[in-house]
């Protein structure tokens, strides 16, 4: 059995659920050897030793172009980019957008907790109106960004885009499996996962679950 080394995520973080689900799928499908995961910088960087597969760090916002370079060099590899909502939809959006437009056969997993969590809870493109953050202490008053929905307008018809949540591990598994199948078929895939951030949300227990359930009312889960 492969050894799972505990990562350094905060207590109550959604990342471990997502990573364990990904790891289980790769193991079941015997894809661990072919899998390569690049990590954006943010909370995603803490996944460096989370799974028994090849994993490396990149820079903030740069995991997508790094992984497309890897994939084009090794088309038989299974390339994942793990990133937060800031890395995907703010600093990395230009690269993510064009990679989706070109239908690069990589799988991007976006962990959306509506804040820049690693740096202490600043506003992200996914922050909700009224949400108090470190950079909007009186409440965010801007627009909200819908990543997969925005990409749907420009992606290939066979590209795969979906959103689920960290408290729906069965859907995480289903969507990641479909994303892997999409990559294997030569198309772009992205799965956004609404994830817990009790540290920055300042929530405990049920309040964290309620927070995610409220997020689902804004960010519709399902295939997009």
């Amino acid at each position: 059995m492969p050894e799972y080394i505990p990562a350094k995520f905060c207590a109550g973080c959604g990342y471990p659920i997502i990573l364990m689900t990904l790891g289980r799928i790769l193991e079941q499908k015997q894809l661990s050897k072919k899998a390569v995961m690049g990590l954006d910088i943010g909370c995603s960087l803490l996944a460096i030793n989370a799974l028994p597969i090849n994993i490396f760090h990149t820079h903030h916002g740069r995991v997508t172009p790094t992984m497309l370079g890897f994939k084009r060099a090794r088309p038989d590899s299974l390339c994942f980019g793990l990133t937060g909502d800031g890395g995907a939809y703010a600093i990395g959006w230009q690269s993510l957008f064009h990679s989706a437009l070109r239908d690069e056969p990589i799988t991007v997993i976006v962990v959306n907790n509506t804040v820049y969590a690693m740096t202490g809870g600043q506003t992200a493109p996914t922050t909700l109106p009224g949400q108090k953050t470190d950079t909007n202490p009186n409440g965010y008053d801007g627009a909200t960004f819908f990543g997969p929905e925005s990409l749907r307008h420009i992606t290939h018809k066979d590209a795969y885009l979906a959103r689920t949540a960290a408290n729906n591990p069965k859907d995480i598994a289903t969507y990641i499996e479909k994303a892997i199948a999409t990559q294997s078929a030569g198309h772009f895939s992205l799965v956004e996962i609404l994830s817990f951030c009790p540290t920055n949300w300042k929530t405990v227990g049920k309040a964290t679950m309620d927070y995610v359930e409220n997020l689902k009312k804004v960010y519709k889960v399902g295939e997009i």
Binding site: F56, T66, M67, G69, F70, K71, R74
Partner: peptide, 11 residues
Amino acid sequence: FAVCGAVMAGQ
């Protein structure tokens, strides 16, 4: 960054 990814893969 694509060059970074490519050379990591040995290209």
